[in-house]
Design a protein around this nucleic acid. Sequence first.
RNA 1: GGUCCCAUCGUCUAGCGGUUAGGACGCGGCCCUCUCAAGGCUGAAACCCGGGUUCGAUUCCCGGUGGGACCGCCA
Length: 469
Amino acid sequence: MTENKKPVVRFAPSPTGYLHIGGARTALFNWLFAKATGGTFLLRIEDTDRERSTPEAVEAILNGMAWMGLDWDGQTVYQFARAGRHRAVAQQLLAEGKAYRCFATPAELDEMRAAQKAAGKPMKYDGRWRDRDPAEGGDKPYVVRIKGRDTGTTVVNDVVLGDVVFQNDQLDDMILLRSDGTPTYMLAVVVDDHDMGVTHVIRGADHLNNAARQLQIIEAMGWPVPVYAHVPLIHGPDGAKLSKRHGALAVEAYREMGYLPETMRNYLLRLGWSHGDDEIISTAQAIQWFNLENIGKSPARMDFKKLDNLNGHYIRETADYTLTAEIVALLARQTPPHVLTEPARERLTKAMPGLKERAKTLVELSSAADFLYTDGPRALDAAAEKVLTPDARSTLARTLPVLEATDWSSQALETAARSFAEANGLKLGGVAQPLRAAITGKTTSPPLFEVMALLGREESLIRLRAFAG
RNA sequence: GGUCCCAUCGUCUAGCGGUUAGGACGCGGCCCUCUCAAGGCUGAAACCCGGGUUCGAUUCCCGGUGGGACCGCCA
């Protein structure tokens, strides 16, 4: 009697490619909804297309989910393994007269569609075998089609879009079983969602039209109808469909670009869902707040500037040693791999408070910190090259003896630099910028004197002497 | 072409009949400052168009326009 009324949701990607940003958001919404309601989040791999499904894609999806921090309940369901069950449902429908055999060949159907298009008619299966005696087909191959209602309407009650009404005569009799006896996606989703006890179907809006068709099967089987929530799609920065042209669509590509999983969760959540004016929303907070009602109805575009800004925020919130570990891992993945010495790691961690304040991505953080994990005179970047004019180099040369005579602490170095600047009628910047260029090879860095103190007297002087002229 | 969905600053969005139309990113200015960030203050920036309904429409209805999705023996 104590029936479990907790929601059951699922993410059901097809393993024909990597986990892209839209799929990741769908997965996130499902995950969040399950967490928020104390429900169950299931993962089902829709691999009924044997031609296009690959183990590599399954791997990529699983890795993407793991990186995003989205874990699911129970075993991963592989849809193709359930083909027998799908077939049985189709047979039952056939036996009950709610489905029928269609002997039309693919070539014949192509011809039909071409003719419809030429005549400016809607392209749909014309039901040519709907009321025909299957005996006429003889022993030729056939597909099994649903015998849908051809009058009245089918209404999809969608939580985000409202009631969406379809005229049944617009819906054609879709294929349940292919001529080789394998189930199609339309049949498989419905059967699996039912068997898995799915109560809420949260998926991309590209499935909205399918919902009406799937409802026909659900109705024919007399099964309960799940709650639908079709989430508007994500477009590229130019408003067009998200495509490979925009690059960096796989969730793993975002990792390679140096974005943090918590950034992705926050960004993706806000792309299409809102909670008043809140922008920075931790995952824990999202679990408290998430609901289906606040999902927006309109499609959204990716905005990398905002993603960067958010990532900067989460980088600043991340512990210094964690960031060091990320950089170490990132450098190890590089070709050729760069392995950091223990002292280098220590310097990195110590400098991290100043470093992370300035970075938008892990990649940026890593390159901005290169002067801490490689020794010797710097290779100047273009801006630093411009700073180190002959004039600047001579200032550098004159500063050198002053620094050499100074106690090597951040405080003392700054004091020395300040009095030197004052004595020479320079601003502190006039002295500091050449120093910074020589020390870091860049024109921007964490506070210079802290950096110098961290690097130590020996290493700092080596770098300074290389450019003192 | 058919069906369906969508429409507030450049972008993400709040708004749920009466608001100086709010926030965030980005952009400009100022402050802070050894650089760059971060932070603070501040400025410019939007209700797609046309009809209704209403005392009153960004908000409700209809039409148009503009985007988008789907129309496979793919999922």
